[in-house]
């Protein structure tokens, strides 16, 4: 990554990444994570929202040894160091899946669908995965 990219002095926008897919059956989750990490270099105001099967991306205790895929769940714990600190999880999505906040690998803010709807309205850019 080049340092120069950060010296543009441009305005800070609110970017929101919506994650709706489970982690290993399709490539969306990993792609989203990579875009977030690359995008972090631009020092924008980033939020990650986990709804639908996206909540499965951040379940604790993932062990992919048996399916020969990379376990990328620990990387969500590195997001804080990339200054990506706003992680929101939809309560309804957790409940429908028999999950609770304690099942998640990272600290998140659990929100209702209505609160997430309002959060989305505040964004400048919304990217959906």
């Amino acid at each position: 990554m080049s340092e120069e990219m950060m010296e543009g002095g441009g305005t800070i926008k609110k970017f929101c990444y919506i994650n709706r897919k489970a982690p290993y059956g399709t490539v969306y989750a990993l792609e989203s994570l990579e875009v977030v990490l690359i995008g972090a270099a631009f020092e924008q105001d980033v939020s990650l929202v986990f709804v639908d099967d996206g909540v499965f991306q951040i379940t604790k205790g993932q062990d992919t040894a048996g399916i020969e895929q990379k376990n990328f769940s620990p990387t969500y714990r590195a997001l804080e160091m990339y200054d990506v600190e706003k992680l929101y999880v939809e309560r309804e999505a957790l409940e429908a899946r028999g999950l609770s906040e304690e099942d998640l690998i990272v600290d998140v803010q659990v929100m209702s669908a209505a609160e997430i709807r309002d959060l989305l309205e505040e964004q400048d850019v919304v990217l959906s995965f």
């Binding site: 990554m1 340092e3 950060m6 990490l37 972090a40 270099a41 990379k70 376990n71 990328f72 620990p74 990387t75 714990r77 590195a78 160091m81 990339y82």
Partner: peptide, 10 residues
């Protein structure tokens, strides 16, 4: 720990 090679800033 994180399964990722960090960016230089990080």
């Amino acid at each position: 720990e994180y399964q990722i090679a960090p960016a230089v800033r990080v």
